[in-house]
Design a protein around this nucleic acid. Structure first.
Lengths: 200, 200, 200, 200
DNA sequence: TATGAATGAGGGTTCATTCAT
DNA sequence: GATGAATGAACCCTCATTCAT
């Protein structure tokens, strides 16, 4: 005889043997991070988000800190590939600028990456393990950019993008794409003087 | 017979009638924010840091959210003046660059501002009130910069600084001041091509 | 409008301002210790036993270990006075033996002291703070006995009593009072050879 | 792709077909009992101590209570033989006293027995099954002693030893062997009046 | 005005036990 | 036979907030 369903409408969860449950928990943790930030990372929130019993989270992760660390690691891995893929078809400086402008004035899907990135950066301020992770991520991002701009300009460009993305996340009256384009274009190629689309 | 002490470490303190206690509490809250981030903002932590009884915090602030908001407001106000003052003696582009390089490769006192700034930015992502505060801060910062660079370049410079400060906070092997100087110099004056100290 | 009573029949507890609640919690903890042993010392058990909300226990005691330590300290203090009082009217060796036999073949009220004493001894094995407490208790007990027997015999007598009390607690077929009396009498006065009531 | 490890430290161990694993688990449980007391008896602790997978403990024992009971039973059996063997070469009262003094002022190996004995006694207070076990142990111990002292004195001697061992376990400034010897000698032979080594 | 006692929700974590493999 | 994934209860403790004094 099966146990009765609880009264509160939540269906019984008979799910035993669920492979890659661990990965699903990590994805749920990233969802929570986007919506609530690091304060939202609790066993109970993550479990509810992953539609998994509480004990399942504590079973797979020895501590919340470890869960958070692995979630961030998963993000960096996934986002690293995505980021590199953005530049796959880029041949000219103009195309590079196009991609970067899209990066800043991003779609909702970019919003997620941006928020997670900043959460990681802030968490890394006080966690050496996360600091190493963030450093690796920054390095690989700059390597991607450096293929187009050279090493030094890549660092500069990366910092500019970081700041612009943060501002874009926060601003209520979004700066026009044109202003963003100009700023990026000048950084990608300092000889650019005009604010409009580079024609040469 | 003396009344029993509570179990936590809060000792008995006979300080009655303490003007500007409210301000001291806010400063303590900022200290906590620097050291532990927004998760550390609890009545007990702040009270202990301010060396003030627990009830004093709840008495002066209707809720924790309000305490945090006022603490951030105090920070923006203080930091705004400080920031403007940094540029008081600046006359040439070279001097501007000097000040900005110092801003990025900051002393420990700058560390505090940088951390609080990022804490504010991240908290503002999910709190409309803080978002307005952060927006005002960004605007006034850019106005200061714009006195030297014009409006558009100020926004670009501000974003660059933001990104470089974050990277400087996180990196383990700090990038040389020279690289920072070059990046800033090129942004301040796009005609700069060399990486070394600008001579005029 | 008062909040409604909970559905499970437990009456609402409007009790604010309850002085010597801390002492009541400690007494409840001792009750729990008697009934369930150290494993039963949980915030919830003690709170329920003291008819006090859970938060009240955590408020008054910084940790469970501290609660347990203070409870044992309270027991030692109370029991110390009781123990000394047992010998107030003792004038002769025979009266001393009478009191000690009663101590071993104790009433239910003695059961409590015996169990708490052994719980303390065992807990003290692994807790230096409790070890000091237990040592002090043993010392003061032996001082009381020494007033009748001298220092060395007091130690011997104390050990014998300890062992007999433990056996009395455990045995299913209780040894007769006569056997206990004989054993004690021989220890109190080694010249005693017979097993029956000392007449001299 | 390897299956994920659980979050706790239990590593993968390829030991299949391990006879007398059950006995090894019981010995591990006794080790845990000595070090942490009955609260430490958990499936995980015992499994880790025995270097055995978690499931192995639940497989061999229907419940934790049963595991504990069997561990105590194993202790009583082993310790019973050991205890009897202590008296194998005893011929005179003086030799008997020597053995008993060693029993109280024991080496580390005796420490283990003493702690386990008291753990058993206290656990038996609240568990009828263990009470029977403890009663049997006490009986057989007294039978060994009775071969030298007679039935009544054996019970008295056993109680004295029990108390002295407990005191010896707890005391920080260990009572001298001489005092212990005197106490035992007087109990073994009430005609003994002097405190020093009995010469006949 | 100012304080600290009081409360209950919710936090991280450990655990005995069940069960599919 | 043997194992480890899975589950939910219960653990200790921290906390925001309320309120009597």
């Amino acid at each position: 005889m099966a146990p009765p369903d609880p009264a509160d409408g939540t269906a019984r969860r008979p799910r035993r043997h669920d492979p890659d449950r661990k990965a699903r928990i990590l994805d749920a943790a990233l969802d929570v991070l986007v919506e609530q930030g690091t304060v939202g990372i609790t066993h109970r929130h993550v479990a509810a988000r992953a539609d998994v019993p509480l004990g399942s989270v504590t079973y797979h992760f020895a501590s919340l800190a470890e869960l958070q660390a692995q979630a961030f690691a998963r993000f960096v891995e996934q986002r690293g590939s995505e980021f590199a893929a953005l530049f796959d078809g880029v041949r000219t400086r103009a195309e590079l600028v196009d991609v970067l402008v899209d990066l800043v004035h991003g779609s909702p899907s970019r919003h997620r990456s941006a928020v997670l990135g900043f959460e990681l950066h802030l968490a890394a301020l006080r966690d050496p393990g996360l600091r190493a992770l963030a450093a690796g991520w920054t390095r690989s991002s700059q390597e991607v950019l450096a293929r187009f701009t050279g090493q030094d300009d890549a660092a500069r460009l990366d910092a500019l993008l970081e700041g612009m993305i943060m501002h874009a996340l926060l601003t209520t009256e979004p700066r026009s794409r044109e202003a963003t384009r100009t700023a990026i274009a000048r950084t990608v190629d300092p000889r650019e003087q005009g604010g409009s689309r580079a024609t040469r």
